Amino acid sequence: MSADRRTQADRSAATRKALLEAGRTLFGEIGYAEVSTAAIVKAAGVSRGAMYHQFADKRALFEAVLEDVERDLVRSIGSAVAAAGPADPVESLVVGCLAWLDASAEPGVQRIALLDAPAVLGWERWREIEYRHTIGLMEERLAGAMAAGRIPPQATRPLALVLVGALDEASQHLATGRESPEAMKSVIVQLISGLAGNTGGHP
């Protein structure tokens, strides 16, 4: 690749990064419906033409932002599990779910991934993206726990969807401040412990 092409590719990548960062900030702070393309390009420091060169429209930018949010959630969960170093797959599942709850309770993540995404992208597209990231990670962890004999064998996707639904609902309640994090986390631990046949609150 020539130096000119490298420079052009670098500029394009920098423009895309600036738009994603601006979009994530604005979508997270005031919501998709209230964000104009003019506000996005101003915050990103690029031209309107540069935005439409990278993304077909505001909706396409929002979808790319959601992908980034989902990837960050998966990274946060993975880092928490790696730091805890649990040997037991159910304990690993508990640590991951609690990390997910912490990360998804952040207001910007809430607004983008849980509130606006279904309305902006439609339920099927929203779920398709989640299947590639957070729901997919949940299925993987559940399958590992089943393979290790820690959770009775069953269909992983329905179980993953039920657990994800519980975590999403829990994070929304935490965002309102009406429930204590300790109480909500205790419920999540009990729920996962129950899957493994434990009732004492410990995996």
Rank of each mutant, 00 (worst) to 15 (best):
A82W: 07
R48E: 10
R75I: 10
T15L: 03
A60P: 02
D10P: 05
E67Y: 04
I77A: 11
A84D: 06
S76R: 14
L19D: 14
D57S: 06
A18Q: 07
A14N: 07
A84T: 02
L93I: 04
L20W: 12
Y32C: 01
D10Q: 13
E67S: 09
L73I: 09
E29L: 01
P89K: 02
R48K: 13
K17H: 15
K17L: 11
S79N: 12
K42I: 04
I40T: 14
V41K: 08
R71W: 04
A87C: 03
T37P: 00
F62C: 08
E91L: 10
V65N: 00
H53P: 01
E67N: 01
A13L: 12
A83Y: 00
L93V: 13
A87S: 07
V90L: 14
E70C: 00
G45H: 05
R48N: 11
A87H: 15
Y32P: 05
E34R: 13
E29N: 05
A39T: 02
D88K: 07
L66P: 03
H53Q: 08
I77V: 11
V35M: 07
A38G: 15
A22V: 03
A84M: 10
E63T: 11
R71H: 14
S47V: 06
A33C: 05
A87K: 04
P89C: 12
A60N: 02
G28M: 11
R48A: 12
T25C: 02
L93D: 12
R11S: 01
F27H: 02
D88R: 03
E29I: 02
E21S: 15
R24I: 09
G78R: 00
L20F: 09
A60K: 14
A22T: 08
